[in-house]
């Protein structure tokens, strides 16, 4: 799977309150959540972002609360993938569980700038920066997480387990 698009760049420690503020969590409707995506990090973001764009951030992306609404909102806003230097633990789990592609790469996080056009090869973990003509490598995805991805997320994986038992 090739994920190609324009980059929005964010810094360190982007917390889940910044991704989707708690004041909007009286619903879990993905479309409603997407209307407020990244609002407290950049209030104009919901109107600027386009389906097919990608987010590149620095360290500890998704820290703070366990709200799955954060990766759900990112996905519902049409963002294809998130690349960061590192991810907070619960966000990392949630992204794989719900099928939001995420990639860890210190080099990509450092080199890619806002507005760059990039192309992520989700299977090979290679991130191409078309604007700069550079190539970066993402950390390999652990085999179990790959199993989750190929099952189509944790619920599909669980469904298969229940059927098999």
């Amino acid at each position: 799977m090739i994920l190609k698009g324009k980059v929005w760049k964010f810094g360190n420690n982007i917390d889940t309150d910044a991704i989707i503020p708690a004041r909007y969590l009286n619903t879990s409707d993905p479309k409603e959540l997407a209307k407020h995506i990244m609002e407290d990090a950049d209030k104009d973001f919901p109107s600027k972002v386009r389906a097919g764009d990608l987010i590149v951030a620095e360290a500890n992306f998704g820290c703070g609360s366990s709200r799955e609404h954060a990766p759900i909102a990112i996905k519902a806003a049409g963002i294809q993938a998130v690349v960061a230097k590192s991810f907070a633990r619960i966000f990392y789990r949630n992204a794989f569980n719900i099928g939001l592609p995420i990639f860890e790469s210190e080099e990509a996080s450092g080199r890619i700038k806002e507005g760059d056009e990039i192309e992520v090869d989700a299977d090979g973990g290679v991130i191409k920066n078309i604007t700069k003509g550079e190539k970066y490598t993402a950390k390999p995805i652990p085999p179990f997480m790959q199993e989750l991805i190929s099952a189509g997320g944790l619920i599909e994986w669980t469904k298969r387990r229940i059927k098999a038992s």
């Binding site: 709200r67 799955e68 619960i90 789990r93 949630n94 569980n97 719900i98 997320g153 619920i155 669980t158």
Partner: peptide
């Protein structure tokens, strides 16, 4: 809920996960 880690004070292993983890 991310603050599920509280119960470690009792000598338990407890950790926050997402809603889908809980569903499974």
């Amino acid at each position: 809920d991310s603050h599920t880690c509280t119960y470690g004070a009792l000598g338990a292993f407890s950790t926050g996960v997402g809603s889908t983890d809980v569903a499974s």
